[in-house]
Amino acid sequence: MFFSSVLIEVLEPSAKTLLEFLQNSPVVVFVMAFFIVWIGCWLPLAAIMAMTLNLRLNKPLQPEQKIPLLVSLYLLVPLVLWGINWLGLGSFADYGLIADFSIFGSLLLGFGLGVLGLVVVFIGQFNLGWCYLEKSNIKSILPILLPISLVALFVGGIEELIFRGFLLTNLEKDYPIWLAAMISSLIFAVLHLVWEQRETAPQIPGLWLMGMVLVLARLVDGGNLGIAWGLHAGWVWAIATIDTAELITYTGQVSEWVTGKNKKPLAGLTGIVCVLVTGIILWLFFPGTYL
């Protein structure tokens, strides 16, 4: 008891000083502190997993290697944000994650809109002869349906909590909403380079635009993350299902900059148009309470 009391007496002034510093520091410093703490907590786990998975720095990550690293990294996000909440520096509600059943309705709406948009894009490409459906592979969808759905919901939810939740909300304290949206979307796009550079680089403009549309999705949802989460998860689910089941084969009739460089829709004109049209639909048909 004596030692614990002494420890509290020693740490309490330091904790108060740190809290006061974070409260009075510019938003950029606070945001940087979040990412430093988050990555700092993850690095020991990453080192252990790298040895376990036999990773090599000079070789690209395989899906079976990337997914455990990604899941371990993203699982830490709610814990770090809970710590911020405990310090009184923000809350999940501030970031758009509300404890209300209405968020599930918004989630389903966004998911449906995201999947429908990609279905329309690929049907258009089928009709134009730019690609065709591998009908023999349709049967392989069922076994992967549940795991891909869970991964899509998890990845979409965590990334929205970080970039359209924590990051956007805090940047808005020092910047107008349009600039906060542009900065948070740029960070969102660039950080995707961490996992894969060659295939991700052509997607950077599309990822930035995707981030902007997801900001709009939060705005039209009255500041909640439901529609943005659903859209993000729907896009991830559709693309991951197509890639994993190898459902689409491109004919090469048009440049891959039209259909998507490296078979990535966001690296092509059709994917960018899909995201733009989604944004227009949100703007016209989902008027909400703007932040």
Rank of each mutant, 00 (worst) to 15 (best):
K135S: 09
V10G: 04
Q125H: 07
G222H: 03
L118A: 11
L55E: 09
V220N: 00
V31N: 09
G40M: 09
T289N: 13
A217K: 06
E12F: 13
G117H: 01
F30T: 09
V151M: 12
S140A: 10
N127D: 14
P287W: 05
Q197W: 09
I141Y: 02
D100W: 03
G222P: 00
V151R: 11
N170T: 03
S4M: 09
V254D: 00
N262L: 14
L219D: 15
L22Y: 06
N262G: 04
T249Q: 13
T249K: 12
L19K: 15
I162N: 00
K139L: 11
G268T: 07
I177S: 15
T169V: 15
Q62W: 08
A217N: 02
P60H: 07
I148W: 12
F111T: 10
L107A: 11
L53D: 02
G157Y: 09
H192I: 00
S4W: 13
T200G: 04
P63S: 08
K139A: 13
L7D: 13
I67L: 12
L153V: 02
Y175H: 08
L107W: 07
D243E: 14
G234E: 06
V213S: 00
G40W: 05
K173L: 12
M212C: 10
I39N: 03
I123P: 01
A152I: 01
E256G: 02
G83E: 13
S149E: 07
A217H: 05
L276S: 14
S184G: 03
F2P: 04
L108M: 15
G268V: 03
I204Q: 04
P44K: 06
V275Q: 08
L108T: 13
P78G: 05
L87E: 05
K264S: 10
D243Q: 15
P147E: 06
K139W: 07
V6D: 05
L108K: 10
P78M: 09
K59G: 03
V190F: 14
L89I: 04
F34H: 13
A228N: 07
P147Y: 04
F285T: 07
G112M: 02
F188W: 07
G223P: 01
F30H: 13
A50Y: 03
N85E: 15
P287A: 13
V121S: 11
M32F: 07
S255W: 01
K264D: 10
L7Y: 14
L118M: 12
